[in-house]
Every structure is written in C-alpha cells, then in structure tokens.
Nucleic acid binder design. Structure first.
Lengths: 161, 161
DNA sequence: TCCTTAAGGATAAAGAATATCCTTAATTAT
DNA sequence: ATAATTAAGGATATTCTTTATCCTTAAGGA
C-alpha cells in the first residue's frame, strides 16, 4: 500500500504556489520542469486539485495555476485527498457474512469490528495530516536551505509567472 | 491507496485462531471455507504471518495453524505488517534534488519536510493499530452476535481442529 | 504405505498506477 | 484579426501490483 507519486509532486507544487504573489499564475510546464516530472501526468494531478477547489486556473500565455485560498487554509489532507480520493484505505468486504453457520437472511446489527478498528486508524492518519497547512510546509521546506539557493529558486519561479 | 484484501482475511483468521484450545491447529482449507475466500491465495498470506512469527504451523492430518503467542501479545499492526510489509506508505523520491537552481553536488542536510510530515502521519496510523490486540478483536467480533450463532460457529471450528 | 498438510516456485489474469498523445476552448500578446 | 499559449479532458499504451491458480516437495499422522 503506497501513495501515488503524484502526491509528492503536488505537495511540492503547492509549496511553490504558496510563494507566488497575489494573482500570479504558474504553468504546469514550469512546475513540471522545476521538479523534473512528466508534464502531462502532473497536469492530471493539478486538475484534481483544481476540481477540489484548492487551485484556480487560467488559460492563455501567463496562465497556469495559483492557490484558490490562503496557504493557511489548505492542509496536507486536502491536497492528498484531492489526488488519492477519500475512500478509506481499508475496504471491508463483509466476509463474516460468508460464515457457513450464519442463518440465511440474518442481518448484522453493526459494522464489522475489524473495519471499525481500521477506520479509526485511518482517522488518526487523517487527523495528523489535517494538522499541517501549506504555511507550515513553506516553513519546513525553507529552513536549513542556503539563502542563495532559496533566492535563486524564487527568481527562477518569478521569471515564469 | 488501499490495503490488500488479504489483510481483512488474516485478521478474521486470527480471530478464529484466538478461539482455538492450546496446541490445536486449524488448516488453511477450513479457514478459507469458513470465510469464503480462495484457499491457495489465503495460504500465501498465512505463510507471511508464519514467517513473521505470529503463527505456528504443523504438517499432516490435523495440521494447520495456531497462534504463536497469546492473543494479547499480537496487535493489529503485527498482523497487517506481516501481510503488507512495513515500508512507509509515502515514498520520498527526493524531487527537490531536481531543482534546476540547485548547485551540482549539493547535499541536503535533512530529509525533505514533506516526507517528515507523511511519515509522522504514518506513525499515527501505526500507533493506532498497535493499540489493539487480538484479545480486543475477539471481544469486538463477538459482542452483539446471537449466542446461538457463536455457539454454532465455535462447534464448526472445533469439529475441524 | 497412504493421505493430509504447509512451503514455496512458476505462471496467469485483472486492475491500478504511470504515463503519452490528441483535440477543444479560452486567453493573451502581437 | 491572428498566432501562440494554456488548462481540460478523452483515448490509449505501458508497467507494476494485486489476485489468484497450479504444481512440486517435504513433513507428519493414520
């Protein structure tokens, strides 16, 4: 069980977009080049973020994507769920109903205990990811990085907005 | 991102095995029939549990599997990791190193902040699953179930040990 | 001696992840 | 106007993982 590589990509993209000035857009092409990932496939993931209401897009030259809201209002979970969907990682197939001793037509009163435990763990995971915003991300990704590299990266991005 | 169906299967199997008397074994065939899942494929998963030291197997007629230790000493996480492996759900590919502004040969001082957040969420998930044992599972799976059904199921199993 | 069983290797089928390509429509710059 | 640029989305291909199935081997019990 492993997350899509797109999750890593879009989180890095969000960090970049967090640094953009108001109403500036950055194109998929540039985000793909900056991160060394395939443009077309990254595009699919960014479309998902757009549909989830996390990004705003615009067409034409100088078009691309920007954040739809403040970085402090976008969490890791928002981004991940936009790409991965929000279906639980555990799919209960109710195999207890296959029990050969079970009376025909018997109806279980509650969800299977196994599913409940798994869903609770899922929720712990989500809770942890809900607690981190893009603002936190920006801080984490910049601290410890040489100022010269930060500056150069910033200029690289700004030259393409 | 979804867990293998084998995870559900072996958790149910562990619940059954928890109910076995000391030094009694139940065969893959019976576990597969009870849960209505393919015997050969279930077998692979049980082999994983065995290799992980959670189950003990024995050959020949009246052979099969039993728990290798007390149900209170086996957690959900133990079982899940035996089947799924313990590789983190987030695989950091270090795409920050693709940054075109990054000096050649520059070495990052610490793991990527994104990976750290993801790994922390992973740990929250694991922590939640470490907190539930097979003893807890037995209780959860039996409460609310009609005593007649429990009894019949127990007899079904005992008849095959 | 014969039957049953786990272990494990080989292989196949189905589905998901990872792309690539193309068309369309909107927007901007010239 | 026109041409260039861009996101959106459909179609398709490739690779990898999951989900099996089959077979052989060796061990244990009747």
């Amino acid at each position: 069980m492993i997350l899509k590589s797109q999750v890593e990509w879009v989180l890095h993209c969000c960090a970049i977009l967090s640094a953009l000035p108001e109403n500036k857009y950055l194109a998929t092409k540039d985000l793909a080049e900056f991160h060394g990932v395939p443009k077309e496939y990254l595009s699919k993931a960014l479309q998902s973020l757009s549909q989830a209401g996390l990004l705003v897009s615009t067409l034409g030259p100088s078009g691309g994507y920007r954040l739809a809201k403040s970085p402090s209002d976008i969490t890791f979970l928002d981004v991940i769920e936009a790409v991965e969907g929000n279906t639980p990682t555990f799919a209960c197939t109710e195999i207890r109903q296959k029990n050969p001793c079970r009376p025909k037509g018997y109806c279980e009163p509650a969800p299977c205990g196994i599913a409940r435990v798994m869903w609770e763990a899922d929720e712990a995971w989500r809770q942890s990811l809900r607690a981190v915003t893009l603002t936190d991300l920006s801080r984490m990704l910049t601290e410890g990085v040489p100022p010269a590299l930060l500056q150069k990266s910033f200029e690289w991005i700004m030259a393409r907005t």
